[in-house]
Nucleic acid binder design. Structure first.
Lengths: 238, 238, 238, 238
DNA sequence: AATGAATGAGGTTTCATTCAT
DNA sequence: TATGAATGAAACCTCATTCAT
């Protein structure tokens, strides 16, 4: 999939004297290298070799290894937000909209393992590169808005429970889809199960969607003025 | 915190000629270094300097940087499983037992940020060190058992829904507690929120417990022979 | 001698930006270092310093200390076989051809003390590097052939004795010329004699040639159907 | 063979508090280590481990790695001279005495591969340790004497040729027996032959004895006032 | 726009040796 | 006599980066 994305080579000619193509080749090789090796494990030499360009060209275009990494990161993040298709679901009935939003997020995580790994890598590095980016943060502007919109409409309809924090909800949707992928290598070893087999993924998708919707559509007793409230409050002490 | 754990002879005396203490000092410094810098970013020099021992002593005791990393990893994992206190919750009423299990897991993740980071680091490295460990995997033997036991008892009581896969459940419990911590640096920047403030954490704990229990206690219509089944099945195509 | 061989651009200018020259300078410095210090005693740092190049360039060109050593070894061996000039002596009258072959071998050993030392070094290391070379062994293809040819022709002429094993002959020619050079440092100390003084060397050359030819031209009594055979056979028991 | 020489252990008890035994164990382990690994390749740690003593004891007894090496060297050399049994052959008929001397030397070299390797190692190091020894050189006092005695008696008898330099003769006897052993690893690879197979060794022994005796008993024409002298002199120019 | 050559700083690891008991 | 703990110097090698064209 990755290699297929490389243009040039069409004529078999090495993409010399074609700045666009060289840049693209570098970015593609860099993506693979950073994703598979991590930031500290990635080697500029390998990126140069894999992209078929001179090592110095990398510095010419991207300034430094970190600069190259940041551009890779920005491209990956930009892809994530595009695929979440917020606008498409805003207008749907709340339950269906939420179902699709959860499903979309799940599907995108499954489809782009690179994203999962780069997110982990970036957090290992305390997000210091992300914080130096000017292009990524704006992408997240509308995200919570969409969630909030769906939530409110669902609450107004009496379909969703009240008092749902949209950040918490986002964290849960993402966490349910993220963890089993990000930690698949340790988990599959410890639990003796292959998580990325197609059938398993389909099952997990159902489970995740169901869990989120169960939570949203469950109207707790106390909201109807009922009892049992003390049980839930009792754990605050922890 | 770290330095305080070292049983130095008396006051602030450097623990020379005390192999136990030297080993402990190295491990403590290594833990901090690996956790904060990652495996590739960690520097043996820094570990030696921070632990106050000669660099060679590290190789004498642990063989290599990787050997030291593995021992750090094993200790952290061993701590995780100890704190999950499976046995304590097995005998509780299913709902309460599950509530405590979820809470315990959440609390332990919050209490040991090292664990979160090392798990991420290890997955970035495809769990290749973990797979070389003989001590970690056995720790996970009873985990799914506990979950299964609670589930079955709850299902027998009619409190929990049927057809819950215990691995899926484990992944969800862990994912809900893990993601907001593991990815806190990118998320807090992108969402403008501090996730680890005490109040936020308490709120998230409630949310996570509530989500899991909502899922478990929600008896889907079809289990009562109802409709709406087609809606859930409709997303398989995605 | 060494420095003079470097084709530096003009006068004493450091041959930067000239990979051929850099490679040659490294090899020359490496040869001296390995020959004088042995494989384990050689220091890459010294080679870098002596050749005037950056240490890393050595790894860039030769991969490792062992790789550099192997290339030095290959070059030295290649020089040996070239100077043995097999073909030149094949057509000569057997006695004269053999005399020249012995002399050539002796002269080359005397002329290239490096070869003697590297052979010793390589044998101390059980020839493990040599066995990893693809270029050295082929050089030895024609060697025994030449010996065999001369031997047969001499035997046909009745000049040489029968039943001479060409490998034994090769070992003796080489051993007579090799040992007093390879072990000159212990021997000159123990026997109070300087073996490499020009006059001594000339004398030894005569002695070696004479010994080999004496052996070859001596027709043992038994070959003429005579007695004394039992004396020679008597030592088999040893 | 080596391990069998270690005393102690008779009672199964580790040889603590027995300085003689400890010293012997160290020397035995050191011999093996130096012989197989060379001087620079030898590891004090391995010697300590193999001899079962504390590393510090080595320094206590021998002062340094070099000191230990020197003692190993002295013991090996002392063994060589003992076995050459000069005196036994002095009284024999010249031809038989010489035959035995050559055979003894050959046999001893074959029997003590350690000696061969240590000689090579010591020469790689320019005999600098040997020159620091006070015990080895005296061992060589009588060596040339024996040769000279046999030679003169043989010459007086008319059995040996005149004008034989005893040092040259010694170098040749040793070289013929030494080279094929010292360089066996490179040679067996290059010539595709196993030199140390028992049958090969017996054949080479015959060859070596025969070559030396052929030389000694060959009375060149010029000694009888003959011609051909110019041929031999002609190679001086080389 | 692009390249091949070269570098300096620093990485992990090794090893002979000494310390303190 | 003997030991286990610890060390300092230096070894081989790596890697992001820059130079000169």
């Amino acid at each position: 999939m990755a290699a297929a994305a490389i243009p040039a080579k069409a004529s078999g000619v090495k993409a010399t004297r074609n700045p666009e193509a060289s840049r693209a080749r570098i970015l593609e090789a860099a993506r693979i290298e950073f994703v598979t090796q991590g930031l500290n494990g990635a080697r500029v030499d390998r990126i140069a070799e894999q992209s078929g360009v001179n090592k110095n060209l990398i510095y010419h275009y991207f300034g430094s290894k970190d600069g190259l990494y940041l551009e890779v990161l920005e491209r990956i993040y930009s892809g994530l937000r595009k695929s979440q298709k917020d606008d498409d679901v805003r207008g749907l009935p709340p339950l269906e909209g939420m179902r699709q939003l959860v499903g979309n997020t799940f599907d995108h995580f499954v489809a782009t393992p690179d994203l999962i790994r780069l997110m982990s890598i970036e957090n290992i590095h305390y997000a210091q590169h992300l914080k130096g980016s000017t292009t990524i943060k704006p992408l997240y502007g509308g995200l919570l808005d969409t969630l909030r919109t769906l939530l409110r409409r669902g609450q107004a309809d009496g379909v969703f429970r009240a008092e749902v924090d949209e950040v918490d909800l986002y964290l849960s949707i993402s966490g349910l889809a993220y963890f089993f992928l990000s930690n698949q290598h340790t988990l599959s070893w410890l639990l003796d199960r292959d998580f990325v087999a197609a059938k398993r993924v389909a099952g997990r998708r159902r489970h995740v969607v169901e869990m989120v919707l169960s939570y949203l559509t469950h109207i707790p007793p106390e909201e109807a003025g009922g009892a049992k409230t003390e049980v839930i409050k009792s754990e605050d002490g922890q």
